Computed example of a mutant assay.
Amino acid sequence: MTQLPDNKKITVIFRIEAGCLGPQGANHVVDFSGVAQQKLAARFPDFIKWDVSPRDDKNLPELDYGIGSRLLTRDQAQRYLAALDTPIDDLEQQVFDHLPQLIDQYFGR
């Protein structure tokens, strides 16, 4: 696949809950988010930009999608990713399946 210019890449906004990092997660979630963003940047670099941050507002979903400064609905993101032969359900499953590995790497397990 040809690499898309940054302004055409879909942004995957991944909000990490402190609780997934254990009882002291609140002390680590900001640093972990930065590390996770660097690690995830290697996944689908041709068409995804990752934005990983703590999930401070529980009203916001764990995953959101956007292009540029515009948020996309899940249906819009699904159509965009389908055009890139990447089913959104598969992408989301890969993210959540990879999270325990990222946590283990962060804590040096």
Rank of each mutant, 00 (worst) to 15 (best):
F32L: 04
V29F: 04
C20V: 05
D57H: 13
A83G: 10
K8M: 15
G34F: 06
F14D: 06
E62S: 15
L63P: 04
T11Q: 10
A36H: 01
Q94F: 01
G108C: 03
L4Q: 10
D57K: 12
L63C: 14
F107C: 03
Q38L: 14
K39C: 04
H98Q: 11
P61S: 14
N7T: 12
L81C: 07
F107L: 02
F44I: 11
D89K: 12
A42K: 15
P45H: 11
I103Y: 00
Y106G: 03
K39M: 09
Y65A: 05
D31L: 10
I13Y: 12
S69P: 03
D85W: 09
I13C: 08
R55N: 08
T2C: 08
S33K: 03
H28C: 01
A42W: 11
L72C: 07
S53Y: 05
Y106V: 03
G19L: 01
D85Y: 13
M1D: 10
A83Y: 02
A41Q: 13
L60C: 12
E92I: 07
R15Y: 05
T86L: 10
L81N: 00
Q93H: 08
F47H: 15
S69M: 09
L21Y: 00
I13F: 12
A82F: 09
R70C: 06
D56G: 11
D90E: 13
K39A: 14
P87S: 02
L81R: 02
I67C: 07
E92K: 07
M1G: 14
S69C: 05
C20A: 08
F44P: 01
Q3C: 14
Y80R: 09
G68Y: 11
W50H: 07
P54E: 08
R109S: 07
I48F: 06
T73V: 05
D51A: 15
Y65I: 07
D46Q: 15
Q37E: 15
F44D: 08
V95E: 06
L81H: 00
